[in-house]
Structures are given as C-alpha cells and as structure tokens.
Design a binder for these strands. Sequence first.
DNA 1: CTCAATCCGTACCGGATCGGTCCCATATGC
DNA 2: GCATATGGGACCGATCCGGTACGGATTGAG
Lengths: 151, 151
Amino acid sequence: MLRLSKKVDYGLILLSRLAQRSETASAREMAAKYDLPPSMIANVLKALTGAGILVSTRGAQGGYELARPAGRISLAEIVEALEGPFSLVDCVGDEVICRYTEVCPTHDPIRVVHQRFHDFMAKLTLAEIVGDARFGTLQTADGHEKAHLPG
Amino acid sequence: MLRLSKKVDYGLILLSRLAQRSETASAREMAAKYDLPPSMIANVLKALTGAGILVSTRGAQGGYELARPAGRISLAEIVEALEGPFSLVDCVGDEVICRYTEVCPTHDPIRVVHQRFHDFMAKLTLAEIVGDARFGTLQTADGHEKAHLPG
DNA sequence: CTCAATCCGTACCGGATCGGTCCCATATGC
DNA sequence: GCATATGGGACCGATCCGGTACGGATTGAG
C-alpha cells in the first residue's frame, strides 16, 4: 500500500516537536506528552539518531535534538531512516535485478514515477511541513481544518 | 511502507501498453506478453474497469481499452482503483476520527504531507508517465538507463 | 560512589496485509 | 454449441508491520 509506516508517522510528530523548540527532549517525555507507545518512540528516536538526523545526549538530563536546522532535513531522509531504502517497487532500488532487463513493457514508466516521488520528498523539508501546518495554509477538500494524531 | 503494491505495479505496465496502442487487448494476451501472473492480471484489469479507467468488451475477441485519453487518467486514480482510498496515515481519510482532535502535537504536519502527495499524484497523468519513459528524459543517479519489470 | 535516568542494540511476537491462485457465472463471436 | 472473454468472489501462505521487551552502556545528581 502507498502509505507511511507508523514509524514515519510518529517520527514526523517527534521531529516537528523538536523543530519548534530548541531544548532537548527525552523519549519518555515525548511519549507521555503525545500518548504514544513509549518503546516505539524510543526505537524511532534511535533510528533517527543513527541516521544523523538527531543528536543524542546520554545519561540523566539527556535527550534528543535536531542535528541540523529543520530546513536541511528532508522528508526523503526521514523516510529512509525509518523504513530503509526507498523503492516504490522492487525494480527501483540500488541493487536492481530485473528478470528481463531488455524487454521492458514500456521502457520503464515506473522508474519515472519512482524518481518523481523521490525528488518530491527530497525537496520537501521538515521546516516546510511544520511551517505549512502552523500557518494553516493547508486546505482540505471539504474545507475542514482538523488536527492530527495517529490511531 | 511507502511503496506501490504489485497491483499498481502491474497496472501501470498494462495501462502503458493500452495507452500506446489503441487496439483492445485481452488479459491472457498481456499476461503472456509480459510474463506476469495471469490471474493477477485479470484481477487488476477488472478493478481498473470497475473504476471507469478501462472499458471492457466481453466474449470472444473481447478485451480492454482505455476509457479516456491517457492525458486524463491520473496516477491518483489508478492507485485508488487498485489499493482503495489513498491515505498516507490513518488520520487522513474520509472518515477521520482522531483520538485527540484538539491537542495535535504540531497542528497536523502529516495532513500537509498527505495533501501534497495526493496533489502530486492527481497531476501526474498516464500520458506523462509513458511519455517520459519513452523519450528517456529520466536520469537515474548513477547515470544508468535500465528497463523495468517487476520481480 | 551509588543510584536513577537515559540512550543503545537487538530480539521477539501476534496480527494485518500482500501476492497469488482458483472457481463459477455470464456474455459473445464463429 | 463451444471456445474465448470478462465479472465477481473466496481462499491461502508468506511477509511485513506495529508494538513489546530486555540487558548493557553512559552520565548527572545526591
């Protein structure tokens, strides 16, 4: 399905939080605040740290903060950090092995789609996402403005 | 995972084929040509027909053809026909029920992303996809131009 | 220097979804 | 009437997701 995993879902919430305040925040703290599964939040934060999107401080009074300004963190990065390499279909990864490399039906329409999706995500920054939401520039089809929380 | 289902994968191949030749083609015929699972191809074509993207002719010498010009068939339509309603996360569908509608962490950054994804797909037409692939305007990261076939 | 808070790495599990197959009914051309 | 097609389901095994858990390492506080 064309759908973000819960990890990314949670990740965006956490990152948005960290983007709006410069203070560090702990996993426990954020999980409690947004009423999200603590273990899962911990794992998400670990992954984001491992990918270099967050930096962590260990020990008491420790926590997480953005490794870079939100304007330099792309959606593509976030997705790849939490879901692994992005590939819309099997044939569009790094190690692509097509069964019939030569005789492709339409000379690869799907690779085009993949590339466009990736470009789109690479250009969409955390700053833009947070900014758009904050200033309410989003117009839903039915004109509603609703808040979001997973579940 | 942020990934197209095989149905959409196959669907794009089939639609590309139908977009390039105006003659009707049968399920059996296309499945054989591209060496794809016949039953699956049949199901995909049924779904696309049900959604009004294809029109079918039953009986001997029957088959499928595009219901409209490829320029008027969007990726969003195709995805929704084969995967059901598009929603990047649970909270962004038609019948959205958030647990905490009021106190959303960042005032809904994810809905923004959803909306952008949808707009992106709604504006990308089958004609563009096929066209780009045919004229080789796609540049992959490593400079390769490879064909695509699922599996 | 001990303890609590916090991150780190990884393994584990039930359930949902996907990819794929199959069957039977209906329609149509030869 | 018979082969060729689509129409509409049900069905099943494998995979992946969402979520949990546990032991270890690091650091600040008292």
